[in-house]
């Protein structure tokens, strides 16, 4: 049995509406992360994937709260955490890299100072040792002339280099889990290829587990072992990456894959999913995808559970009710 490093159960994240009610942004999702694996979370804007990742770090923005559920990292349960506990965990056990490397680095500190800060916060080392460690990290992430870069400021670096610095900071204390929230979305394809290559290499070296959040199915195909597809705050499909591309089950996943332009095949028109993602607070009753789904039927007015398929995928859709075993509510 492969070891589970991270488990999320019935995670609910929401905002308060004007009357004090709760509007769910993430509506009770369950997943786990094995040691050394890369789990992809895909979905379109507004599906709750970023809120999921931020709640794993205890970094939800003001006004957004976790309403329930458990997050467990090894034998730690995040529910009981106060601010101090979070600070000890962040960076040490679980680290994150963000989409926009410019706005997530501090513009008034040098690169070296920002890596040192992380190391000195978590480990009992001298400043000199920290600096050496920072230098090592910069070498690990493939930054040319690392000695100089240590003394440079973020604005002196290009987008790709900044993202490498972010990765160096995130990995400087050797965390068990790395959360990468759209790590290459702001980068050009050739730079994206460099960064993805780097992440794979480092994962092999350090045996890390990665949660990769992205909207880009190409990046998923490239990087992930297992994939979770989110739609409107819920998990609609969970499967191995090969199965997701070969036999997508949920109509949303199918639609998403079909709407991608295929570089090998020439089609005059792309298939598309009609309509738009519903806004939080205005979710349809029953299956949330039903209003955009071409297979919607009477049954879809009820919320479907996750059905387990023969190949181990799990799908939240009534189409798979017959002949498939339903995963127990747990």
């Amino acid at each position: 049995m492969v070891q589970k490093v991270l488990e999320v159960e019935e995670l609910k994240v929401g905002i308060k509406d004007e009357d004090g009610g709760k509007i769910a942004i993430v509506n009770g999702i369950n997943f786990h992360l094995h040691k050394g694996e890369t789990l992809g979370i895909v979905g379109e804007s507004g599906c709750g994937k970023s809120m999921t990742s931020l709640s794993l770090m205890g970094l939800l923005p003001a006004g957004v709260e976790r309403h329930g559920g458990d997050i467990r990292l090894g034998n730690l349960n995040f529910n009981s955490f106060n601010k101090k506990d979070w600070r000890q965990i962040r960076g040490k056990k679980i680290a994150m890299i963000f989409q926009e490397p410019m706005s997530s680095l501090n513009p008034v500190y040098t690169v070296g100072a920002q890596i040192n800060e992380m190391i000195l916060n978590h480990e009992r080392v001298s400043k000199k040792e920290a600096r050496n460690r920072a230098l090592e990290m910069l070498k690990l992430v493939g930054i040319p002339r690392p000695e100089q870069v240590l003394n440079e400021y973020p604005h002196q670096l290009s987008g790709g280099m900044r993202q490498r610095v972010m990765i160096a900071i995130a990995l400087s204390c050797n965390p068990e889990v790395l959360i990468a929230d759209e790590p290459t979305t702001a980068l050009d394809v050739t730079i994206q290829a460099q960064i993805l290559e780097l992440m794979k290499k480092i994962q092999d070296q350090l045996h890390m587990s990665i949660v990769l959040i992205t909207h880009d199915l190409g990046v998923v195909a490239e990087m992930c072992d297992r994939v979770i597809v989110m739609y409107a705050g819920e998990i609609v499909e969970e499967s191995l990456v090969v199965d997701l591309f070969d036999q997508p089950s949920h109509p949303y996943t199918k639609g998403l894959l079909a709407s991608l332009p295929d570089i090998q095949e020439q089609k005059e028109y792309l298939s598309s999913i009609s309509g738009v993602v519903p806004a939080p607070g205005k979710m349809p009753v029953g299956c949330r995808f039903a209003p955009r789904c071409s297979f919607a039927h009477e049954r879809c007015k009820e919320v479907p559970p996750l059905f387990e398929m023969e190949n181990g995928s799990r799908v939240k859709c009534w189409l798979y009710e017959d002949g498939e075993t339903e995963v127990a509510a747990k």
Binding site: V189, Q192, L196, A221, V241
Partner: peptide, 12 residues
């Protein structure tokens, strides 16, 4: 190089 940098459309 630009074309080869495109993420592959299928994991295999």
């Amino acid at each position: 190089a630009l074309l080869s940098a495109l993420p592959s459309p299928h994991p295999l």
